[in-house]
Amino acid sequence: MTEIELLSWARGPGLQIATVIFVAGVVIRIFEIFMLGRKANLAEAKGGEMSGGLKTMITRTIPDRTTFKRSSVTIVSGYIFHIGLFIVCFLSAPHILFLKDIIGFGWPSLPTPVIDAFAVVTIIAMLATLVNRLTNKVMRYLTNFEDLLTWFITFLPLVTGYLAFHRIGMTAPTLLAVHILSVELLLIIFPFTKLMHAFTLFIARWYNGAISGYRGVAS
């Protein structure tokens, strides 16, 4: 298989396969969650379930003061890598074009050097999260194979993207193909791992906020 064939496969059939698995997996997971159902709360409400849920979906993004103090490394590295990942994923021109081709519309991109800088920062932050995961007592206790796998599979597109942009090590078509393949790998494992939190955290936060909000507490 030549480089361009590999690239074409990655952009064509590979992406199709990954998309099918990703979309099907996510949809099935969402169905699994919602179809389990939840009993209506019969207690007299003190606050709004919907408003509480929606509010928490957003407010939970900000850590509580004491928690921040107690877990600043986890929170800061996590924050940086999530924000960096978001910027690199959704504000770089090639990625926007990718999404535009799928969803039909695009948005302005950030200059490449900015993306590049964010990529470096994100890579560092991800390495920091790994170090933290392996050294922090609690995280090390909780860490299982899946945690390491998802870290690695998330890390791969970042690194391959960085290498592809700077054309390090291999030819550009190969690097691009490897980058796309690494993203496809991410898409494939996504629905079956904790990566699902990217979607389900909004559901989880809504439930959390709804449960509290119903009792008149802003969670």
Partner: peptide, 10 residues
């Protein structure tokens, strides 16, 4: 949804 979301952040 809770279990689906846990990332073992500790």
């Amino acid at each position: 949804s809770f279990f689906s979301s846990c990332v073992h952040c500790g």
